[in-house]
């Protein structure tokens, strides 16, 4: 575990979480949520949990973003908050 790397990723993580929850365009929110998942994946590789990092990169950053985008395509892209 490298402390400087840890701090940088955790700060980016909080920023990505706040951005993905505050943008009004849901497609942009889904994309920033994909970035959030990828940052979590980096954090896990850095913690020594490589198996969890692989799963997060495919399932967390990949599949859940695709699921959200598919739902937005079937519903509405705009959000009031």
């Amino acid at each position: 575990m490298i402390v400087a790397f840890d701090i940088i990723i955790l700060v980016f993580l909080v920023i990505a979480a706040i951005i993905s929850l505050s943008v009004k365009d849901l497609l942009a929110a889904a994309m920033v949520f994909g970035i959030y998942g990828f940052l979590i994946c980096l954090l896990w590789a850095e913690m020594g949990a490589v198996d969890v990092a692989f799963t997060e990169a495919t399932v967390g950053a990949g599949v859940s973003t695709v699921l959200i985008v598919a739902t937005i395509l079937n519903t509405r892209r705009k959000s009031t908050d």
């Binding site: 929850l21 849901l26 949520f33 979590i40 009031t80 908050d81």
Partner: peptide
């Protein structure tokens, strides 16, 4: 606090990842 249901679900996923991070960091 969020009004949109998809925003709520994204928030729920973020909540979940915080708990996962806590548990994985215990093994470091």
């Amino acid at each position: 606090a969020k009004n949109n249901l998809i925003k709520k679900l994204i928030g729920l996923s973020i909540f979940q990842t915080a708990i996962l991070l806590l548990y994985v960091s215990l093994g470091v």
